[in-house]
Amino acid sequence: MGWSAKTTFHEATFLSTTAVELHQVVKRFSGQSVVDEVDLSVPTGSIYGFIGPNGSGKTTTMRLILRIYQPDSGHVEVLGSRDVKTADPRVGYLPEERGLYRRMTVRQILRYFAALKGVRRPGPLIDDCLERMEASSWQKKRIEQLSKGMAQKIQFIVALIANPELVILDEPFSGLDPVNLDLIRNIVLELRNRGTTVIFSTHDMSQAQQMCDRVFMIYRGKKVLDGTIDSIRQSYGKCMIRAKMADGASIPEGLPGVLDQTAEQGFFDLRLNSDSERQNLLNQLTQIGDVEHFETVRPTLHDIFVQIAKPKSSEIETAEVIQ
């Protein structure tokens, strides 16, 4: 079973290769670029992970795709349309900041949003969705009577109520218990299998690594990563060496070709300028002493994220001066 038994495979859209296309998109607030010349191409039927530190521009990019914001320059194409003035009913959205009308019942909320998405006779669809989300018994409850996690599941249904072709989920897994997390993760994977394109943002790198076909990382408004998990890890892995010296000897800092290094339990992770430095590094280490361990490692997404988003020492010094 897909999202619901009544959902259909998005055949028409699946024929086109990209669900979302951003070209040189810029969005400024108070003169400051929050999204800066970003290009992005989201293939139809894929799960695309948006990662990046807080305030990096993920949510703004999502709002640009949703046409809540309009770009200052560049263009956004969603499901083959560049019309920026109307909300597209083929797009479902779960915002990061979650809220619903507290006085309305679950069923009233779902009927209301179904009407906003142009769903005719939504009754059977609502029943089906509630059942799929194991929430059938809540339909007469007011939102204010639900727990945070329960309300989040209702919002998830709201995002999918119109059987969208593109689903944008901003931090969909935050605040969920493991059971509900699995439930929603399975539904997301089922959506992808049915041809729905899913974009979701997350701070959980292992989640992104497990679920996403492709990952897009934005940092300070600029795109810094974009590609499949494997290609990203591959490209970062070539430059990363894990080494251990015999007798626990340390590796001095500032070796030629080494950008930075970290040490843990006698192992040193050394990031190189380029692949060509590997042999040079090995030569230098053998001159220092006996090399017990030397391997090229593929970093996790977490490692790559930290490597990109970790404040540089010069920035820390500046911040201290400002304080």
């Binding site: 797009v91 979650r98 619903l100 906003l116 709201v158």
Partner: peptide, 17 residues
């Protein structure tokens, strides 16, 4: 105020202009 305080606005703006 309710739509702003309870963060309903963004959900609405995802469906309508």
């Amino acid at each position: 105020m309710e739509e702003k305080q309870h963060r309903i606005a963004e959900l609405l703006l995802g469906s309508v202009t």
